[in-house]
Structure formats: C-alpha cells, structure tokens
Simulated scan of single mutants.
Amino acid sequence: MNIFKSHFWYNKSQRNGILLLGIFIIILQIFIFTDPFSKDEIINSETPELIVFQQQVDSLKLLEIENRKPKIYPFNPNYITDYKGEQLGMSIDEIDRLLAFRKTNQFVNSKEEFQKVTQISDSLLAKISPYFKFPDWVIARNKQKESQKFTSTSKSSNTYQNKSSYTKKTISTSDINKATAEDFKTINGIGPAFSKRIIKYRSKLQGFSYKEQLYEVWGLEKEVADKVLSVFKINQKPILKKVNVNTVEFKELLKNPYIDYELCKKIFNYRDEVAELQNISELKNIKDFPLELYDRIVLYLLAE
C-alpha cells in the first residue's frame, strides 16, 4: 500500500503544476479546433483580373491540344495506306474501296472521283481535300474542265474578231518546238493567253517529246489542240537534260514535271533498298509506280 501511495501522493506545489498543465492542455485543444485567427474568405471569381487570367489559361490549353493533333501535309490520295486513312478519319470500308480501286491500276484524279470511289461524306471530303496533291498534268486537266465556259466565251469572241477583220497569217515554222507565240495564234481558238501558255509548258518540258503532251496544257480544249497538231509537228525531238537517278538530290528530282512528292519519296526509298539502280527500267519494280507515265518520266532520268 505504501508503494502505491508513493506514486500518487504529491505536495501542494506539484498539484498546482499538474492543475496548470491540465488547464494549458485544455486551452490548447480549444485553440486547435476553433482556430480563432482563421477566416473563411470568399473569393470573388468574377473579377476582371481572374476572368482575363482564366481566358489565358483556356487559350493555352486549346493551343496545346491543337499542337498535339497530327499535322497533315499535302499528299496524293491515290497512295493512302490503312494507317494514313485512319489518321484522316476514314472508315475501314472507305479505305478498302480505295485500295480495291487502285488494284485495278486506276487512279483518282480529282476530289469528286475520290468521293465517288470511297463514298466518304461531304464533311470529311471538305476537311481533307484541301491537302490533296495531284501531278501537274492532272491539275491541268481538271482546270481545263472548269474553264470550259470561259474558253467557250473566249472562242466566240475570237471567232467574231476573225470574221470582222480576218487576214491570212503565215507561220515561220511547222516544228511545234520552234514555233513562236505568233505562229500559234494563227490557229483558230488560240489567242495571246493560250499561245503564251503553250510556250511556257513547252519550256517546262524542255520541249515536246510526244504530241500528246500538248493535251496537258491547262485549259486547252482537245478540239483546239487537234487543230494545232494538224499544223505543227515534232520534226525533231528535243535534247532533254537527264539526271542520274542514283545521285540526284530530292529537290532536283521533284523538278521532273511528272513526279510528285509521294512518287519522289518512293523512288528514293527504293534506291536506298537496292543501293543502286542498274537500269532505269527498275523503276517499274516500285510499288504503285504509275506505269502509264513511265515513258514520260524516264525522258528526264538515266541510271549510271
């Protein structure tokens, strides 16, 4: 009993100390739970500063989302793969229709033909068609159809002028590669604009090697082109500047009037695979190579 008494018996000063300690602990607990210095401040989120700040944050979020979206670069829709089609938002059936069409060795040459083959919606066509990149000769042919009304009007005007003041004109040469703008203007239906356009395209080709190349001149109707070819011939084929397909640079190869970006990339990939083309005819081994343009493409290429 003395043992317990020794542990629980305190003198007056000790009891006062214990009492003060208890009071201090109680006060501390009240202070912690009530926190008299804290105030629930209500922040006004409608202040002009906060509104401007929130708008800036939202614009940065939208910019980040836009930057994360895959970029779309110009491409030839004839060479769309499963992965590319999925990126563009095409369904599997739409991609399969295009691939089946391409297996028949045919090409779509306009956004209307692309929609007809794939059966994509108007909204998706409007979204991706601005990125379509067709070869120059395809673009020229498409624009020719669009300009038929304008050409018809010009033709009527030229016909009226010829009837009102017609004088027989002579030509300086019958060689289409040497003919001048004045020579071409002797053909009914060829005015200053078309004569300059023919010469400009002839310069791009370094001269006409095939008479059919005249039909590639933008806006020139087949009937008018036939009249030109009835007067002017290819008396002597031009001497074209050829480049070595094994050493040519990418930008230089793109100058070929019949090679677009996608085909240029395929040629370079094939060149990397085989190390060196032994014969220019090896281009036909490239997957999806446009065989119908082979004779014109190789006019400007050689393999050495």
Results as ranks from 00 to 15, higher is better:
residue 67 N to W: 13
residue 65 I to M: 03
residue 251 K to I: 14
residue 221 E to L: 03
residue 98 L to I: 05
residue 114 F to M: 04
residue 96 D to A: 11
residue 68 R to T: 14
residue 295 D to T: 12
residue 221 E to N: 08
residue 101 F to C: 08
residue 208 F to A: 00
residue 225 A to L: 02
residue 68 R to M: 11
residue 231 V to I: 14
residue 289 F to S: 02
residue 132 F to P: 01
residue 72 I to F: 05
residue 100 A to D: 14
residue 297 I to D: 01
residue 36 P to N: 06
residue 148 Q to C: 12
residue 295 D to V: 11
residue 89 G to Q: 04
residue 89 G to A: 08
residue 236 Q to H: 08
residue 9 W to H: 15
residue 194 F to W: 09
residue 29 Q to I: 15
residue 91 S to K: 04
residue 116 K to C: 13
residue 76 N to A: 07
residue 117 V to L: 05
residue 60 L to C: 04
residue 141 R to S: 12
residue 139 I to P: 06
residue 52 V to C: 07
residue 283 L to K: 04
residue 9 W to P: 10
residue 209 S to E: 12
residue 19 L to T: 15
residue 82 D to E: 11
residue 168 K to G: 12
residue 136 D to L: 10
residue 241 K to T: 15
residue 13 S to M: 00
residue 14 Q to R: 09
residue 89 G to R: 00
residue 42 I to A: 09
residue 253 L to Q: 03
residue 142 N to E: 14
residue 200 K to I: 13
residue 105 N to H: 01
residue 297 I to C: 02
residue 192 P to V: 15
residue 228 V to G: 03
residue 300 Y to F: 15
residue 126 A to H: 06
residue 56 Q to W: 04
residue 74 P to L: 04
residue 287 K to L: 09
residue 112 E to V: 14
residue 134 F to C: 02
residue 275 A to I: 07
residue 7 H to T: 14
residue 40 D to V: 06
residue 189 G to K: 00
residue 284 K to R: 09
residue 279 N to A: 10
residue 74 P to A: 08
residue 263 L to R: 01
residue 128 I to K: 02
residue 119 Q to L: 09
residue 185 K to A: 04
residue 230 S to D: 10
residue 68 R to L: 13
residue 304 E to I: 10
residue 173 T to A: 00
residue 99 L to H: 13
residue 58 D to V: 09
residue 84 K to S: 13
residue 97 R to S: 14
residue 213 Q to W: 06
residue 122 D to E: 12
residue 16 N to H: 07
residue 303 A to V: 03
residue 60 L to K: 03
residue 152 S to D: 11
residue 200 K to G: 11
residue 100 A to N: 13
residue 192 P to H: 11
residue 43 I to C: 11
residue 290 P to M: 00
residue 53 F to Y: 12
residue 63 L to C: 05
residue 196 K to V: 07
residue 40 D to M: 01
residue 229 L to P: 03
residue 225 A to R: 00
residue 191 G to Y: 05
residue 74 P to Q: 05
residue 123 S to D: 15
residue 286 I to P: 04
residue 68 R to S: 15
residue 128 I to E: 02
residue 137 W to E: 09
residue 191 G to R: 01
residue 71 K to V: 15
residue 77 P to R: 00
residue 284 K to C: 06
residue 105 N to P: 00
residue 162 N to T: 15
residue 1 M to R: 07
residue 245 V to N: 01
residue 130 P to S: 06
residue 181 A to R: 07
residue 186 T to G: 06
residue 122 D to S: 12
residue 39 K to G: 05
residue 198 I to Q: 01
residue 48 P to E: 08
residue 137 W to P: 04
residue 243 V to N: 10
residue 206 Q to S: 10
residue 89 G to W: 00
residue 268 F to N: 11
residue 219 G to Y: 05
residue 295 D to C: 04
residue 267 I to R: 05
residue 243 V to I: 13
residue 94 E to A: 13
residue 62 L to A: 13
residue 126 A to E: 11
residue 149 K to G: 13
residue 11 N to I: 09
residue 132 F to R: 01
residue 250 F to D: 11
residue 229 L to M: 10
residue 207 G to M: 01
residue 236 Q to M: 06
residue 51 I to V: 14
residue 229 L to G: 06
residue 172 S to F: 05
residue 47 T to G: 03
